[in-house]
């Protein structure tokens, strides 16, 4: 196997629900419920799934913006959930995040230069003239003129703001960037620009991306491998072409069938999933997808399918993968 920059083992994040007179924990929301995957150095791993399936929580737990309930996230062999405060700070230089909403993720009271320069201050990377120079360089890298360094975020468009966010993430020279739906708030034409920028930066700087999204065509474009999440679990993980051409999980298949095709003549088979996503407070027994799965049988209600190889480097968790073909 290639060099794994990130190894995730049995990662869980449960949010407690407190109730009753004594505010005891009565239940929990199982936002992330046992993830196992690796991220290879220099690749882009796409993470897709419906709203509320735990994609964003996964991103935050990967960076330890949230503490994991269980399991480990190993960055270059070290479990980041066991780091002390000081080591965690230096980890922030290695792993960064690009946020979904470019309007909310920039402090409205800070100028662009202050926003992009803040990580340099925090980690004492550059001061004075050197810092100015570095900020200019970063803005240049993301295609913004340094002329606008003294402007405030509200003077920029969504795409430009997202570029500022990218420049901020790049300031510390990170290895891994978790991108939490970085383009879903942008116009389609701007999406392409930002995606292209991110690809250029990846080539230039050798970045590793974890790209969280719900837009399957965007994910297919940018990712090397894709993981599909359903109710806090990864149900399928494979090379992108493999996954898009021969899905091994009925959920993936249903998702793919919902991608709009820009050709009115072409007829295609659409799989309509019945019902809603079950509550992550009380996930269904066995295979969590059995309530909506067209292939479900009794075994699916009782036994949780193993997340295993169904093809070369193609993992899926389903009892009836064979039936799909």
């Amino acid at each position: 196997m290639a060099d794994n920059i990130l190894e995730v083992n049995n990662l869980k994040k449960h949010f407690p629900i407190n109730g009753g007179i004594f505010k005891r924990q009565v239940n929990s929301v199982k936002a992330v419920d046992g993830l196992n995957f690796n991220v290879k150095r220099g690749e882009t791993l796409g993470l897709v799934g419906e709203s509320g399936c735990g994609k964003s929580t996964t991103g935050k737990v990967l960076l330890r913006l949230l503490d994991a309930t269980e399991g480990e996230v190993k960055f270059e062999g070290r479990d980041i959930h066991k780091l002390d405060k000081k080591d965690l700070r230096s980890l922030r230089k290695e792993m960064q995040m690009i946020f979904q909403d470019p309007y909310a993720s920039l402090n409205p009271r800070m100028t662009v230069a202050e926003i992009v320069g803040e990580p340099l201050d925090i980690h004492n990377l550059a001061k004075g003239k050197e810092k100015e120079e570095r900020v200019r360089e970063l803005l240049d890298m993301v295609g913004l003129s340094s002329k606008f360094a003294k402007r405030y975020p509200h003077e920029f468009s969504g795409g430009q703001r997202q570029r500022i966010g990218i420049a901020r993430a790049l300031a510390v020279d990170p290895e891994v960037i978790v991108c939490d739906e970085p383009v879903s708030a942008l116009d389609v034409s701007i999406q392409a620009q930002v995606i292209n920028l991110m690809e250029d930066l990846q080539d230039e700087l050798g970045l590793t991306y974890i790209f969280i999204a719900h837009d399957l065509s965007v994910v297919r474009h940018i990712s090397d491998r894709v993981a599909v999440m359903y109710l806090g679990k990864i149900v399928e993980l494979a090379d992108k072409d493999d996954l898009y051409d021969t899905p091994k999980h009925p959920y993936t298949k249903a998702l793919l069938s919902a991608i709009p095709v820009p050709d009115p003549q072409r007829q295609r088979e659409k799989i309509i999933l019945e019902g809603d996503v079950p509550s992550p407070i009380n996930p269904p027994s066995g295979c969590t997808f059995h309530t909506r799965c067209p292939y479900a049988e009794d075994i699916c209600k009782q036994e949780e399918p193993v997340f295993e190889e169904k093809g070369e480097d193609h993992l899926a968790a389903c009892h009836f993968t064979d039936k799909l073909e």
Binding site: R92, K93, Q96, D101, A104, E118, P119, H123
Partner: peptide, 16 residues
Amino acid sequence: EEYIEAAQSLGASDFR
């Protein structure tokens, strides 16, 4: 707000 989360992900201290 998301920009607070952004600052946390940059490693900013609570005081900062």
